[in-house]
């Protein structure tokens, strides 16, 4: 479904990711692991078109997208829920969600249905539907960001560290919700530092180090890998 083929990208002169190769098959959850600054978010930005690849190719269902504008990529079905959430802070929860469905704006009935789905997935968002996004707690903002991405009905959802800064109980719920979204048919590419939780719902994973992929394998392989255990699971 998504094929990243030898992609490099830079911020200014600084090469942030080098020669990245990733393969995502439809229906899977694939996880990108790696410490802070390893290059996961840069990879996501490049997929979404916010940052242009300086070399290599990105194919989505065999269509090259590495030269495509961000909004076109969203229309094609790749939607990102960014690390810093990028919500509209002065809009309320419901307005944020509706903006998430912007590409389906002509399909009013579908939007209403999706809105209900999100409220079902995250009941707290229904309670807070009239509150400004900027006033929500970190966990609620994260749910809103995922909900907003969900409203676009993506084929592939990119989730950048959804568990960052959340209390352990909420992290568990978050991964449960991600699993649900996947089971409804959305393919998921997930960047995480919480390796154990991420690998337990994922099919396979890639480990980033200094902007390169250091290791890859199935979730089980990575979970039993000594280096991974030492670096990311603390066992």
């Amino acid at each position: 479904m998504l094929k990243i083929d030898g992609v490099s990208a830079k911020y200014g002169k600084y090469l942030s990711i080098k020669d990245i190769n990733i393969d995502v098959v439809e229906g899977e959850i694939v996880v990108l692991l790696g410490a802070n600054g390893a290059g996961k978010s840069t990879t996501f930005k490049t997929i979404s078109g916010l940052l242009k690849a300086t070399s290599g190719k990105i194919l989505f269902n065999d269509v090259p997208i590495h030269q495509t504008a961000p909004e076109k990529i969203v229309q094609m079905g790749i939607v990102q829920c960014a690390e810093d959430r990028k919500l509209f802070p002065y809009m309320n929860v419901e307005q944020n969600l509706m903006m998430g469905g912007y590409i389906h704006r002509k399909r009013k009935a579908q939007l209403k249905q999706s809105l209900n789905d999100v409220f079902e997935l995250f009941p707290i968002l229904y309670e807070k539907r009239n509150e400004a996004a900027g006033l929500l707690s970190g966990g609620q903002q994260q749910m809103l960001a995922i909900g907003r991405a969900y409203m676009a009905k993506p084929k592939l959802m990119l989730l950048d560290e959804p568990s960052i800064g959340l209390a352990p109980l909420i992290v568990e719920q978050m991964f449960e919700s991600i699993k649900n979204i996947n089971q409804e048919g959305t393919t998921i590419l997930l960047a995480e530092q919480n390796a154990f939780a991420a690998l337990s719902i994922a099919k396979k994973g890639y480990v980033f180090e200094n902007g390169q992929i250091a290791l890859q394998g199935t979730a089980d392989e990575l979970l039993s890998n000594q280096e991974v255990r030492k670096a990311y699971i603390g066992a």
Binding site: L50, A69, V74, Q80, K86, P89, M91, Y102, A152
Partner: peptide
């Protein structure tokens, strides 16, 4: 609302599919 969205978060607007 695309105008408001872009004013509040430009990249957020791009990520919901708005042509800025």
């Amino acid at each position: 609302r695309t105008i408001i969205a872009m004013a509040q978060n430009r990249e957020g607007a791009q990520l919901v599919g708005i042509n800025t």
